[in-house]
Design a protein around this nucleic acid. Sequence first.
DNA 1: AAAGCCACTTACTAAGTAGTAAGTATTTCC
DNA 2: GGAAATACTTACTACTTAGTAAGTGGCTTT
Lengths: 190, 190
Amino acid sequence: MTVRPTDTKEEILRLGTELIQVYGYNAFSYADISKELDIKNAAVHYHFPGKEDLLAGIIDQYIQRYKELGEKINAPGITAKQKLDVFISRYTDLCEQNKICIIGSVCSDYNTMPESVKAKLGELIEMVLGMVEKVLQQGKKNGELDFPETARVKSLLIMTNLAAGVQLARITGKKDYMAICKSIIDQVST
Amino acid sequence: MTVRPTDTKEEILRLGTELIQVYGYNAFSYADISKELDIKNAAVHYHFPGKEDLLAGIIDQYIQRYKELGEKINAPGITAKQKLDVFISRYTDLCEQNKICIIGSVCSDYNTMPESVKAKLGELIEMVLGMVEKVLQQGKKNGELDFPETARVKSLLIMTNLAAGVQLARITGKKDYMAICKSIIDQVST
DNA sequence: AAAGCCACTTACTAAGTAGTAAGTATTTCC
DNA sequence: GGAAATACTTACTACTTAGTAAGTGGCTTT
């Protein structure tokens, strides 16, 4: 009804995600967020008492988005190859913005994190791997895709190619990343 | 001749490397190093004036070690497959110690680093990729290995599998990493 | 219209951060 | 034996960090 005012909490989540993808979890502070959003750091603490709570919120949001993506690609008329493209394009988007996958970013700091966050990260990864696995399985079954590995292992191979691919792209440039993407497609093509 | 006293500088480099691999670059401080080595933080600053200098030193040491590895595996009588195993076992060692590859670790914080360090990282990566590429090329030439991609692209695929593989292993366990390693070998086997 | 909640701000603290200037003990060189 | 270099320690500073307690203004509910 009324024009919704800027949702501060949403903005914090959005900016926090970006900061993790661009600079890393332990490289940004609440001050970075409050300055950018022109609020006081106490306002950030109001929504997320500790930095761990913010990280948990960010991961939760990610899980939510992947759930939505999962429903979206379950729509009829989408080929397995197209579904795979959707996943790849998510990483390509990151690459284009000089960002890296949040899982890979947070992984460096994994051992500085509380168990609750570690568990959430595990949940997120299993979900993503599970979705890719399902797509690969379907594609293999209907003859659209082919590969010698099991769908689970192939999903591990593809996801590690993509995750480390965007990391590598920061240093050696996008060309290497693009070559990786092409190979991923080629490897599963019939 | 005389018993060499503990080389403080070497110890700092060793511990710094470990801290990056275990906790990440932006997650450790000079205090962590000085406490562990039972010296004062000023002693760390004496050897490495700034944290960037320490990181540069660590990467330099890594480059040096890979150069040595390069000479070692150029010895006669070593098959391409064995050479590839040497690379893989380096990552398997990391995985066993719950560490991650220094390149992957530093990559999250890449955008917080000075150009000098970025350049060194690029040098390190090109070197490692170049070595793997050479091994693959040789193996393909003498019929020991086979793969559809170019040696360069295959080295990208293998290195991203390994780098992100050890990251993943932190969260989902070593089983996934082992499956990745097995697939890497299978994919290039004739 | 009073009471209460929400989303903040004001104002602060304790601890940790990288970094430095000056001093000291020990060895090395001439 | 004196000078200089090496490898530190002592003692500190300026700054940033996450985090908090108390207050405020506006909106809603009763």
